[in-house]
Each structure stands twice: as structure tokens, then as C-alpha cells.
Amino acid sequence: MPGWTQQELDELDRAGEVRVAGRRADGSSRSLTIVWHVVVDGDLYLRSVKGPEGQWYRGVAHHHEGFLRWGSTTREVTYTPDSSHDDAVDAAYFAKYGTGSATQSLMKAEARQTTLRVDPR
């Protein structure tokens, strides 16, 4: 599977938010939802602020495939649970979005358990 290009990672790192959606059984896209994201060690990560009960997260977790949009670019992606870089993901969220209550919500245990690595398909 091809990875992100450096140009894509740079664009994603600069983007304030992305839109994500899971894939339905028929291959179509669920509704795109805005989420915060970070780039860590050349990989893209995101979390559900509502934990596993977040609607977009449930949709993504069903097939672990879907779509990611930033700017005018949409890519088909896979979503893989990956807690191996949680501390670095925490630090990246704080560096990108500050230490306010919204970012703090992404550090709660229920949000951390939804850390996903997003890879292009």
C-alpha cells in the first residue's frame, strides 16, 4: 500500500481540520464529519472526542475503510487502531491546537482508546 507523499503530509499538517467518513457495505461514503488530526513520525492520526460512542468513529470502526477530505482533496483510506504513539499524539495535539478544554477532551481515556492511524489506500 502506498503511503502519504511528503506534500500530502505537509498539507495535512497545515490543515486545521479534516473530514472523515466510513465506508458503507455497498462501498459508498457515510456522511463526512469534521475532526482534528495530527501528523506524527510521518503518519496521520486522529481520535474521537466522544470516544467509541462517537457516531463517525462507529462508522469508521465498522469496516476500517473510508474517506478522508482536506481542502479540495479526497482520498480513500484505511483506519487502523494504533496506540503505539499515544504520548507523541498527545503532544502533537497540544502543539497544534493548544491546551484548552477541547484539546484536553482528546486526552481523556475514552478518546485515547480511539486513536486511529489513517493510511491512504
Rank of each mutant, 00 (worst) to 15 (best):
M1S: 11
M1T: 08
P2I: 06
P2C: 00
G3Q: 11
Q6N: 10
Q7C: 01
Q7Y: 02
E8S: 07
L9N: 05
L9H: 08
L9A: 09
D10R: 04
L12W: 05
L12M: 08
A15R: 09
E17H: 14
E17P: 01
E17G: 12
V18T: 12
A21N: 15
G22K: 09
G22L: 08
R24I: 04
R24M: 14
R24N: 13
G27T: 08
G27K: 05
S28Y: 01
S28R: 08
S28C: 00
S29Y: 02
S31L: 07
S31K: 10
L32N: 06
I34M: 10
V35Q: 14
V35E: 07
H37I: 10
V39G: 02
V39I: 05
V39T: 05
V39F: 02
V40I: 03
V40S: 06
D41L: 03
L44G: 08
V49A: 11
V49H: 09
V49P: 01
V49E: 12
G54C: 10
Q55A: 14
W56V: 03
V60P: 06
H62P: 00
H62A: 15
H62N: 12
H64W: 04
H64K: 13
E65I: 02
G66W: 05
G66F: 06
F67G: 02
F67P: 03
F67Q: 01
L68C: 13
L68W: 13
R69M: 13
R69T: 15
G71K: 10
T73D: 06
T73L: 04
R75H: 13
E76L: 05
V77D: 10
T78S: 13
Y79C: 07
Y79L: 06
Y79D: 00
T80H: 15
D82R: 04
D82M: 02
D82Q: 04
D82E: 03
D82T: 04
S83W: 09
S84N: 00
H85L: 13
H85E: 11
D86L: 12
A88G: 01
A91V: 02
A92L: 04
A92E: 02
Y93N: 08
Y93A: 03
F94E: 12
F94T: 11
A95K: 15
A95C: 07
Y97G: 00
Y97L: 00
G98N: 07
T99P: 02
G100Y: 06
S101C: 00
A102F: 13
T103M: 06
S105Q: 11
M107G: 03
E110P: 08
A111H: 01
T114P: 02
T115I: 06
L116S: 03
L116Y: 05
R117D: 01
D119F: 04
P120Y: 00
P120F: 00
